[in-house]
């Protein structure tokens, strides 16, 4: 398996991304200044609780939600300024897989047609070549195209539908795949199948993944690096093994202590967070986590902590990170 990637030119650079939605007179800052890079062949996990802006970040990267400000560079292409036809071309290289596999597939179409559609749109190869490519793709995700190709999505289980979604996303050989909670609706045994499949496909197709999920253990399993989000901002980014063994942000520590492990001997260090995240309509001043942070000091209310490097590959946005006295 690949370790933290060598410092080549990143495939994806997100710089000071802001995404806001207006609802009546209120403005929700779903993403408020997120920056990170993603190297070719790397998997970056994006983890956080509901409402932290992780999905919006993913959707902004594939240009479904329009950024309010900030830059998204894919290779050398600035994505935020693309017009419609340029965006269409871009989407052959950047694909997304969604949470609900059943509703993201058209129920009235045959599975082999669903997977072949991207090829048809771009008129890649002859008709029979397209069918062969689609069938080979279905085969590689573990769906037998001869038996199941002519069936429709409702004849499949959730796990199988997710396999079909993956096949559809990969059929054009994209370079970047954004996975938004792709296993959270699946049973654990099926979840394991999909996670293993994703690892195999990533190696086979040299994919770069942005893996968005709320489950800390799932994220750790697939990611080379992990970024933690809270209320629209990044708290911490680090290689996964480091982030989970030596978190520097108090929110990361609290998240980890709340996670349940299937091990009766697991020692729980109770850093139970009180309360719930505040509303993103009116976020706290300074550090957004300060209202729930066990170590908050007056400075946290006045000054927004910027993401800074505390160790190679390890960045944290906290004035008083864990481990620095």
């Amino acid at each position: 398996m690949t370790g933290p990637a060598a410092p080549a030119a990143p495939l994806l650079t997100v710089d000071d991304l802001h995404v806001s939605f207006t609802k009546g007179h209120a403005t929700v800052q779903a993403v408020a200044g997120v920056s990170f890079t993603l190297s070719e062949g790397e998997t970056l996990g994006l983890v956080g609780e509901s409402g932290c802006g992780k999905s919006t970040t993913g959707r902004a990267i594939i240009c479904v939600d329009k950024p309010t400000s900030g830059k998204i560079l894919f290779g050398d292409t600035e994505l935020t300024t693309l017009n419609r036809s340029e965006l269409r071309t871009l989407r052959t290289q950047v694909q997304m897989i969604f949470q609900d596999p059943v509703s993201s597939l058209n129920p009235r179409r045959r599975v082999s047609d669903i997977v072949a559609e991207p090829l048809n749109i771009w008129k890649i190869g002859t008709k029979s070549e397209r069918r062969d490519t689609a069938n080979a793709m279905l085969d590689s995700v573990g769906i037998d195209p001869l038996v199941s190709g002519s069936r429709r999505p409702q004849e499949f289980s959730g796990g199988q539908c997710q396999r079909i979604s993956i096949a559809r996303a990969l059929v054009l050989h994209p370079r970047l795949l954004v996975c938004d909670e792709i296993v959270s609706a699946l049973d654990v045994s099926v979840q394991a199948q999909i996670l293993n499949l994703l690892e195999d496909l990533k190696a086979a197709h040299n994919l770069t993944l942005l893996f968005i999920a709320h489950d800390l253990a799932v994220v750790k399993n697939v990611s080379d690096r992990v970024a933690v989000m809270y209320l629209g901002r990044l708290c911490e980014i680090a290689p996964s093994d480091i982030l989970y063994s030596a978190p520097a942000h108090h929110y990361t520590e609290a998240l980890l202590s709340s996670a349940v492990e299937p091990d009766p001997e697991a020692t729980r260090t109770p850093v139970i967070l009180g309360g719930e995240p505040p509303s993103p309509i009116n976020p706290p001043s300074g550090c957004r986590f300060r209202t729930r942070c066990p170590r908050a000091e007056p400075r946290c209310a006045e000054e927004v902590p910027e993401l800074r490097t505390i160790a190679p590959d390890h960045q944290v946005a906290c004035h008083f990170p864990i481990g620095s006295s």
């Binding site: 045994s189 199948q193 996670l195 690892e199 750790k220 080379d224 093994d241 492990e261």
Partner: peptide, 24 residues
């Protein structure tokens, strides 16, 4: 055993291969 082996854990290193149960 299969149920337990198919659960990713925080205590495992990343990219640990999960035990998967085929079929449903």
């Amino acid at each position: 055993e299969a149920l337990l082996g198919s659960m990713p854990r925080i205590s495992y290193p990343s990219h640990t291969r999960l035990l998967s149960i085929d079929g449903r």
